[in-house]
Design a protein around this nucleic acid. Structure first.
Lengths: 216, 216
DNA sequence: AGGGGGGACGTACACCGTACGTACCCTTTC
DNA sequence: GAAAGGGTACGTACGGTGTACGTCCCCCCT
């Protein structure tokens, strides 16, 4: 049996697999070591501590985003594409999403998406401050969307037909709107919801863009 | 000494205090018990387990949002006000924000904000599906903003002048835009950033609103 | 007065992250 | 060839965690 040498990369991918298979709570150094058929303390030869390992996981996931940027396309299309690319994480690594979103990584992995977004906006004619503002707006929207999609943020979905028609659903007297719109709130087409948000944002920054062009 | 009887409420507020004082990592059943001058296992007479306790914390924080809704105001003003009210949590309980945002609570506490938002939008003339979409859009934006504000989400701030002018900052060859805009990325006026986003979103849904009115 | 239920508490267990010491192997140097 | 050195794997051990379980005591109700 060719037991290839332990390495940071192997540890990180083992952690990712474990998280996707059993959830973030299942992650422990012992568990990962067992997964790799290795002593617990051997991990520490390649990773300073658990926290750094989780940062590694976040970076690895983040750096798998495929940015196929076509510089000739319309800037709105490029923005659309980049936003969708970012959202891919939630599909490829649903249970790692929380991790990616909830640790700030000062490494290069985290900077690439920003670089691309800024380049797109700058080349479209936005000035520096506006480009930064718009990027932050998009990131906030995408992060919030991913969290909802991953099932973690308050979807604020009502009790969602707890199994049967649990009569204890929502008190229509206290929450008239919520209970009236319960069917809509209970279901969520994440794709459609995301696209709606992206289009709305793009349209909004388009008028910002027009204003800048006009002022020029 | 009038040692008032242990209660779920007392436990939850002790947890909130502890989190705000020492951060979420400091929370342990033993720690909270010590804080209350009480045996560890006594807590379990009022709270089924730690997870439920943290849910209680999230609900308590969430339910402290002050919604002073003026039904006579312009609907855009009401939306603005509600968005800002939600953001207040980040200021009152900065270190609890992550908790509020990262657990889905199916209790009534989580439904109130949605109820208010839906009511505002419906009374402004949005139909059901659009109202739900818009609420979700706003929640995504606000959640994402709060996470950034609380310092947890990838601000994607570059190395932020690590102490001195650390020459290892950002490679301008790899990240030209990021390094060019580093001063802007390094600083973030959260208030301004939030207002920018809210105004842009409101403006965007205003045209959606106009379209609906026109079709009527 | 007696009985019963609920709250407070101590002990115990399985698991966690990781500091530290040890044994091995592989490479480099004489 | 031998010796020396460094990096890797590993076991043990410590202080911490959540919580299951059993015991005690007090208060209230009959």
């Amino acid at each position: 049996m060719t037991t290839e040498p332990l390495s940071r990369a192997r540890i990180v991918t083992a952690a990712i697999d474990l998280i996707e298979r059993e959830g973030a709570d299942a992650v422990s150094m012992r568990r990962i070591a067992a997964e790799l058929g290795v002593g617990v303390m051997s991990l520490y030869n390649h990773v300073p501590n658990k926290d750094a390992l989780l940062n590694g996981v976040a970076e690895a996931v983040l750096s798998e985003i495929e940015f196929t940027d076509d510089p000739d396309a319309d800037w709105t299309d490029r923005v659309r594409t980049q936003a969708r690319a970012f959202r891919q994480i939630a599909h490829h690594y649903p249970r790692c999403t929380m991790l990616v979103v909830s640790r700030q990584l000062s490494s290069a992995a985290g900077l690439l998406p920003v670089e691309r977004a800024l380049a797109t906006l700058r080349s479209a004619g936005f000035d520096g401050p506006d480009a930064v503002r718009v990027v932050r707006l998009f990131i906030a929207f995408i992060v919030g969307s991913l969290l909802r999609e991953v099932g973690v943020t308050p979807t604020f979905a009502p009790v969602h037909h707890r199994h049967l028609a649990g009569a204890e659903a929502v008190d229509p007297a206290l929450f008239p709107e919520v209970s009236a719109l319960a069917p809509l709130l209970g279901a969520c087409d994440h794709d459609a919801e995301f696209e709606f948000g992206v289009e709305l944002l793009i349209q909004a920054i388009t008028v910002l863009h027009a204003r800048e062009e006009g002022a020029r």
